[in-house]
Amino acid sequence: MSTRPVPDPLLDSARGLWEQLAAVPVSFPSGEGVRVVTSPESRFCPAGWVGVVVLGGSALVTAPGRQAAAIVRDAFAELAATAVANAEAVREVLPVARVLGPAALAYVSAAGFRPVADSVRSAEQRPGDHAELRNLEKLAGREDTEEAGLDEITSPAFVVRADGQVVAAAGYRTWPRRTAHIGVLTAPAWRRRGLARVVGSAATAHALAAGLLPQWRARVPASRQVALALGFRELGTQLSIQLG
């Protein structure tokens, strides 16, 4: 006698988000399947690329055209669902010019959230377009700044100062399906001091209070550890592929 899967509202919400971002009518396959669809307008990845999202052990893949979709579908038939977001495994079966990621996708509910408490430093709320964020971005450098995306946040910014200067900040951009895509940035000289956890906690609390689903997308282990410390659950992985 088979048993039904235990409902997971957090996973269902995450899948609903990415199904909408696929920009065509589609759903994640059941079990551990891989579904490849043609979607030139997909928001999984840059225009013209192949986008891969694995959530809960099944994969949804968007391709920019029918020919690309056919190539990817045939190639991914050789891979397990969890492997299609593994850059090394993908390179074995596809002609790859560039990849972005993989990035872990993590989410948190109000019940699972573990806010920072009794911190020596507390986060200050500032407007999301405040000039001090641009100064922090200069300190952090282009790559980390683009990853954080603080120039695109629609929320207030939550910042920590040292000697009067903003050295860490977080905020979120509102995505479809009432999702809060969180970005965190810390000046290089102030990393590994718990500041990302402080500002990330403040941004997450603000999103939850607004009835939003916080999403934390991270490629580097340090950022993933911050999310896990705040109670986020890693539910899957995202990868973008430019075919060669």
Rank of each mutant, 00 (worst) to 15 (best):
V93P: 02
R91Y: 02
L239R: 03
L55H: 00
R193A: 10
V198P: 09
L239T: 06
T145L: 06
V226S: 01
L195P: 06
A111D: 15
G171D: 06
V34G: 00
L136T: 09
L228V: 13
A207F: 05
V84A: 08
I153W: 03
F113K: 08
Q67R: 15
G128E: 10
E41K: 12
V90S: 02
L212T: 04
A170W: 05
V167F: 06
V198R: 08
R91G: 12
G16I: 05
Q242L: 14
V24D: 04
G231C: 05
L136Y: 11
R66C: 03
L208C: 13
P46M: 11
A81V: 07
E124Y: 02
A227H: 03
A77L: 10
E146F: 11
D163L: 12
S13M: 01
P102G: 11
R233H: 13
R98G: 01
A22R: 06
R178T: 11
L239F: 03
P95G: 13
A80N: 11
T3R: 10
V26N: 03
W175H: 10
V108G: 07
Q225F: 07
P127G: 12
R224Q: 15
W49E: 08
G200K: 05
A140E: 05
E124F: 06
D129K: 11
G231Q: 06
T62E: 03
Q215I: 00
A203W: 02
G149P: 08
A205Y: 02
L105G: 02
P176H: 03
P64L: 06
L213G: 01
R161M: 01
T154Y: 12
L17M: 08
E41Q: 11
A81I: 10
Y107G: 01
L235C: 10
F44L: 09
D118G: 08
S201A: 12
